[in-house]
């Protein structure tokens, strides 16, 4: 039961990682690339780490096992808070340096 759930979580997480990476390569400008990475990486890391924490509980519900699972979830929560903040910081620095956003008509002058 736990194993099946863990496999589903990890596979979904890796799928979102893949879309984030393809978006990083395909999108036309810097701001759109931030859209792909800021969202895809957050959910991908959250799902993969949750699946790994669930799988580790297969070793029995003793105190060290639960502590290590909590540590893995700790990483997930930290990434959940830190990744959008990093996205925000990079976007702001791009805006202040004057990187022009791409639009349908081409780059604005």
């Amino acid at each position: 039961m736990l194993t099946t759930l863990a496999i589903i979580f990890i596979a979904t997480g890796v799928f979102f990682f893949t879309t984030a990476t393809i978006g990083l390569i395909r999108f036309p400008d810097f701001y759109c690339r931030m859209q792909a990475t800021g969202k895809g990486d957050t959910l991908g890391a959250l799902l993969s780490l949750a699946g790994l924490a669930l799988y580790y509980l297969n070793n029995g519900f003793s105190l060290p096992t639960i502590l290590i699972s909590i540590k893995v979830m700790f990483i997930a929560i930290f990434i959940f808070i830190a990744n959008p903040t990093a996205t925000h910081a990079i976007t702001k620095s791009g805006l202040e340096c004057g990187v022009k956003p791409w639009t349908k008509e081409g780059i604005q002058k």
């Binding site: 978006g23 395909r26 859209q35 792909a36 969202k39 895809g40 639009t103 349908k104």
Partner: peptide, 19 residues
């Protein structure tokens, strides 16, 4: 939002209009 991004990335024409 992740499903939205996945749809945008995997569709060949990429229907975006950023502003």
């Amino acid at each position: 939002s992740n499903i939205h991004v996945a749809y945008l990335v995997l569709s060949p024409k990429m229907p975006i209009d950023p502003q």
